[in-house]
Structure formats: structure tokens, C-alpha cells
Measured scan of single mutants.
Amino acid sequence: RADKQHVLDMLFSAFEKHQYYNLKDLVDITKQPVVYLKEILKEIGVQNVKGIHKNTWELKPEYR
């Protein structure tokens, strides 16, 4: 399990490339446990629960 700041850096870097990611792809990118990753994502992102981007994560507007 990596340092939180290191995980945040990896996530922000990923979100610079694409606006939406599913959790599986973010786990592959960060190599972090799902529960730990979700904890961090809830602080900086929102999970889309409907629409064409259903079940994906994106950054909260203040982090874009």
C-alpha cells in the first residue's frame, strides 16, 4: 500500500489523460487495494451512477 500522496499523484496524472475511469482501470494504474483506492477517490472524485458514464469515476470540479 503506497503513501497517500503518491497515490494522489498517480490519480491526478491519470485524470489528466482521461476524464472518466472505471475502478478496475484505476486499480491497474495505481496497483493499490480496492478499499484503500476508494477511500482516496471519495475525497477527490465522484462516482457516476447513471448515464453514459455509469460506474466510472471522475474528479470533482474543484480538482479538474
Rank of each mutant, 00 (worst) to 15 (best):
R1I: 07
R1G: 15
A2Q: 14
A2N: 05
D3L: 12
D3P: 06
D3N: 15
D3F: 06
D3R: 09
D3T: 12
Q5V: 11
Q5K: 11
H6S: 15
H6R: 15
V7E: 01
V7R: 01
V7G: 01
L8T: 08
L8V: 10
D9A: 08
M10Q: 09
M10G: 03
M10L: 12
M10T: 08
L11S: 01
F12W: 09
F12N: 07
F12Y: 13
F12V: 13
S13V: 14
S13K: 15
A14P: 00
F15M: 03
F15D: 00
E16H: 09
E16W: 03
K17V: 07
K17P: 01
K17L: 06
K17H: 04
K17A: 07
H18V: 09
H18Y: 06
H18L: 05
H18A: 13
Q19V: 05
Q19F: 04
Y20A: 10
Y20K: 09
Y21T: 03
Y21A: 08
N22D: 06
N22A: 13
N22H: 15
N22C: 11
L23Y: 04
K24I: 07
K24G: 09
K24A: 11
K24Q: 15
V27Q: 11
D28T: 12
D28Q: 04
I29K: 05
I29H: 07
I29G: 02
T30P: 00
K31H: 02
K31E: 12
K31D: 06
Q32P: 00
Q32E: 08
Q32D: 01
P33N: 08
P33F: 00
P33V: 01
P33Q: 04
V34W: 05
V34P: 15
V34M: 13
V35W: 11
Y36I: 08
Y36A: 10
Y36G: 06
Y36N: 05
Y36L: 10
Y36D: 07
L37G: 00
L37M: 05
L37R: 01
K38Y: 04
K38I: 14
K38M: 15
E39W: 04
E39Y: 06
E39L: 04
L41Q: 00
L41I: 04
L41M: 09
K42D: 11
K42M: 09
E43R: 04
E43Q: 10
E43M: 04
I44L: 03
I44V: 12
I44P: 02
G45Q: 01
G45N: 02
V46I: 14
V46H: 13
N48A: 11
N48Q: 15
N48S: 10
V49N: 08
G51F: 03
I52N: 09
H53P: 10
K54R: 09
N55T: 04
T56C: 14
T56F: 06
T56P: 03
W57P: 03
W57A: 02
E58S: 11
E58N: 12
E58M: 14
E58C: 14
L59C: 02
K60L: 06
K60I: 02
K60Y: 01
P61I: 03
P61M: 08
P61L: 05
P61K: 13
P61Y: 04
E62S: 07
E62F: 04
E62L: 06
Y63N: 12
Y63F: 14
Y63W: 14
R64M: 09
